[in-house]
Amino acid sequence: MKWLLWREYRLNRLILIAGGAFFVLPYAIVGFTVLTGSYQMTYVTRAWLASTYAAQLLIALLAGNAIAGERADRSAEFIAYLPLSRRRIVASKVLFALLVFTPVWCVTRVVIDNAYLPAPGYVSGSPAHVLSDLRPFLANVVLLYGAGWLFTSRLSSATAASVLGLVVVILLHVGYVFVLIPQKNFFEEFIRLLNDQERFGDAVFWYTMICISLAVISFSIGTWNYVGHRRS
């Protein structure tokens, strides 16, 4: 497993570097503003929001590249002739994604708990608090990986697989919000939702459930494609 993980790292190194850079960049900018004395509280919000988007992009890219990437450069054949079961290979890729995501999660959590939540002006039940709920972020990440996995198992382009995964999540996210909030007076309704902690909590809960279900289904289909299918 160690060697499989190492190989995953080498195969995805560019993605990790780029994704990692984009994840760290917002915090670096905030750090810069602290040094130059122009720091403002709102910067932290924007920073961790931006970072979470970078992280989601990173996960989408990893998922899209997982199987399609190998198919593209024939390195899949190298593995195919070795006595490695495809299940083991799937496990190594998922484990790799988890290992990559763990520091992302920890950093985000630490920033929110230490820089965001304790900030003055923060009040429980306020839109700011509601916004710091990381469940949508997690749900998106899980769905990005699951959907991306489905596409990567069928397509030969890693980019296409990643993009399709992103499209699925964006469509779901946007669609969900539009279903939730009536069109008339959209922004007023949106603010009202953010202030209604219970209603917001429910909305997030169901969103998370939908994402996870879809992710599990996509991942299963994708795995079945890869493990059960003996094409070439």
Partner: peptide, 15 residues
Amino acid sequence: IRQKVGYVPELHLMD
């Protein structure tokens, strides 16, 4: 089978 067979391909397969 792959555990017990030594396979040499036409073009190398290694990364």
